[in-house]
């Protein structure tokens, strides 16, 4: 049973699954930046007292699952999701959906994902892909970060759907169940509410670890890492920031550019030129993140390892904090309709 499906490659897996599934069901105008923006995907958070792969827990985007959920809801699409205890039940459910002609979004872990580059296979369990068919004991896979489609045996797919550890997927599947009408008015509203929610997330979350203030929080930590951890471990920590920022399926500087692309489209949809200016600003922030990554690489490659180099790295992050804060403040002042 193979359903017709158009594979679309994207920068980030959840954007990609959202875009591909909506497009499959006839939402022609959707694309990755639009899905990301309507889903208020841009974020920054540094979770204290928690470690990921032995380094700081930092994310440059909103929590897993939120982009799909928010974008679908804003576009009047009803989503069905389900998790499972048993692998057999999970597999039966998936197969029945494909038999009924529905491509299905699946949350998976990447550690056992055979077609993924080996160097990227850590225990990361919030990856997303689409299953659109099966034949000869293999599932047909559209993984949004891959250039083409792939295949997984039933055993391989079960294994990644039931990966264990943080954010364990438990066979999680999701797919659009019912579509309402998406009028032009509805799209405009979706774009506006996506922007407003993103302004709120970046500027108005209390505390110092989330939104733009989180960037300042990390900068403060970076200043202390050399003394506290030693040059080598501090370098590994900086490397982790870069990896969270630029890794396939995560993209941080990358996320700023996707958001810039979204605002450019939003300017057209809402007929509002001021948004173009904000798009330029967020693009500039993305460029600043990239320069900071280059600086961090200087540290973890051992080229620049003095305290002044850590201070300079922190100063660059403080500049980004000010830039993103000012950008989202001007975004919040634009009257959108």
């Amino acid at each position: 049973m193979i359903n017709e499906f158009n594979h679309i490659q994207s920068a980030h897996c959840e954007n990609g699954v959202t875009t591909s599934l909506l497009k499959h069901h006839g939402v022609d105008f959707i694309n990755e930046p639009l899905a990301f923006g309507i889903g208020s995907g841009l974020f920054y958070i540094h979770i204290p007292f928690m470690q990921v792969n032995g380094g700081p827990a930092i994310s440059f985007r909103t929590m897993p699952g939120a982009i799909f959920q928010r974008t679908a809801k804003a576009l009047n699409v009803k989503v069905k999701r389900k998790k499972f205890r048993s692998e057999e039940a999970a597999d039966d459910y998936l197969r029945a959906l494909i038999d009924s002609g529905v491509p299905v979004g699946c949350q998976v872990g990447v550690f056992h994902l055979p077609y993924f580059p080996k160097e990227y296979r850590f225990h990361f369990n919030a990856h997303n892909l689409i299953i659109y068919g099966y034949e000869n004991g293999e599932y047909l896979v559209s993984d949004p970060v891959m250039e083409g489609t792939n295949r997984l045996t039933v055993e391989e797919l079960n294994k990644v759907r039931f990966a264990k550890g943080a954010l364990a997927p438990s066979g999680h599947v999701y797919y659009p169940e019912a579509f309402g009408e998406i009028s032009e008015e509805r799209l405009k509203k979706a774009v506006i509410s996506g922007i407003k929610r993103n302004v709120r997330d970046m500027l108005r979350i209390p505390g110092s670890i989330a939104g733009v203030s989180g960037i300042k929080y990390t900068a403060g930590k970076v200043r202390k890492w050399r003394d506290k951890l030693g040059v080598r471990k501090a370098g590994l920590y900086l490397g982790q920031i870069v990896r969270m920022q630029e890794e396939i399926g995560t993209g941080g500087g990358g996320f700023r550019f996707i958001y810039g692309a979204f605002l450019e489209q939003a300017a057209g949809i809402l007929n509002n030129d001021e948004l173009m200016r904000i798009s330029e600003d967020i693009t500039a922030a993305g460029d600043m993140w990239r320069s900071t990554a280059v600086q961090m690489a200087g540290v973890y490659k051992g080229r620049i390892t003095e305290q002044k180099d850590f201070d300079q790295t922190a100063d660059m992050m403080i500049d980004i904090y000010h830039k993103e804060k000012a950008t989202f403040e001007s975004l919040s002042k634009i009257k959108l309709k």
């Binding site: 792969n53 590994l236 982790q240 870069v242 630029e246 890794e247 490659k301």
Partner: peptide, 15 residues
């Protein structure tokens, strides 16, 4: 690919 990312990943694997 980008060298800055590659070096971060290589470093993580060395560790």
């Amino acid at each position: 690919g980008w060298d800055v990312k590659k070096d971060a990943l290589d470093n993580a694997w060395d560790d």
